[in-house]
Design a protein around this nucleic acid. Structure first.
Lengths: 191, 191
DNA sequence: ACTGAAGCGGAGCAGATGCTCCGGTAGGGT
DNA sequence: ACCCTACCGGAGCATCTGCTCCGCTTCAGT
């Protein structure tokens, strides 16, 4: 019959490769040597390229896991208090970025208008709807200024992500605080 | 006599190398091939390495020019209206970044706490005093919130620099607007 | 057990990139 | 006009990195 029945070692190695790639992305961003990925996964290079047509494909697959769990945890953290939810979402996202520098890099590569890479775009779509919801809720609660879009918030997040990898947490939290104050309805100055 | 008297062709070639490097940094950031620099300068690789011990040294020298002229033009644009000066400084800096993606990258590499590279740090010091002045003036005028430091503003600039290279000007100007609103004394929420 | 096809490992290829070396060239003081 | 020396150019070296190739291994259906 047509029962391809994936071999057990193949499945195991595929998982190891994804874990290794995700770990390395977390530690050092998306600029990694394929040899290092395969070494960390405990497999050979041939195995890597049997499972993924290209290095980029592997990184995309690994990132998708990362983004999915980010979206899940962020959704679970919602309390219903709109403003609080929005600001903790941003703070948590930046914390996450501090711990794994590749995260918002990947998100940035998926911004509309960026060249190509549909897989990265798919990563972004794991989180984008959540941002839209948080923004809408905060706006309807009258706490977020009404002329701010979800894309503005996305961009703000990506921007802050750059400094989150570079300066200590106390420093970027100050800037986040300022940015949040700028997002408040009470601070609005005509665009 | 002790008249080293730099040869004319040497001086000319050194200038060409600096121009070529600055141009390429502007167009594509700091990740450039030495072969391309020397080709654009119309000289050979040997010439490049006669004048600069390393690629980094050449880039540092080229960036110093760029930063100097940035600082000069920004200082010349001051009007005395504190808030206006601060916000146009930020807008102009981001415009500059849009035109030459390597700019704030270099500035970012010179942030305190970053690893090494004294030359890059020297680049930052071309602009840092100006930021300090602008921040002090705006604060004394009572328009900038009092709990914000010049380093906060630097970080904000670097952060916004990331998106300035990636989305159209209308998009990053919106985010800048929000950030500026957050900097206003009237928007301040306790840190 | 048996067997054959899917899977595995890592040497090696091709191209990119920072830098060096050295035979030849040309500036500029005499 | 001459010559010495600083200077020039670019072939070539060493290294890195994404990817392929192919002989050997191991799973899983019988």
């Amino acid at each position: 019959m047509t029962s391809p029945a994936i071999r057990s070692d193949a499945a195991r190695n595929r998982g190891r490769l994804l874990d290794a790639a995700a770990g390395l992305i977390a530690e050092r961003g998306s600029d990694i040597d394929v040899r290092e990925i395969s070494r960390r996964a405990g497999v050979g290079m041939g195995t890597l390229y049997r499972h993924f047509p290209t290095k980029e494909a592997l990184l995309d697959a690994a990132l998708e896991h990362v983004f999915t769990s980010w979206a899940e945890q962020a959704a679970a953290a919602r309390t219903g208090e709109a403003w609080r939810d929005l600001s903790t979402f941003l703070g948590d996202a930046l914390s996450r970025q501090t711990a794994s520098p590749g995260l918002l890099d990947a998100y940035c590569q998926a911004l509309p208008g960026q060249a190509g890479n549909t897989a990265r775009r798919h990563c972004r779509q794991q989180v984008a709807p959540l941002i839209t919801e948080l923004v809408q809720a905060a706006r309807q609660a009258g706490e977020l200024r009404s002329d701010v879009t979800d894309e503005d918030v996305s961009l703000l997040l990506v921007a802050l992500g750059r400094i989150a990898t570079v300066v200590p947490e106390t420093a970027w939290r100050r800037v986040l605080h300022v940015a949040l104050d700028g997002l408040r309805a009470t601070a609005a100055t005509p665009m």
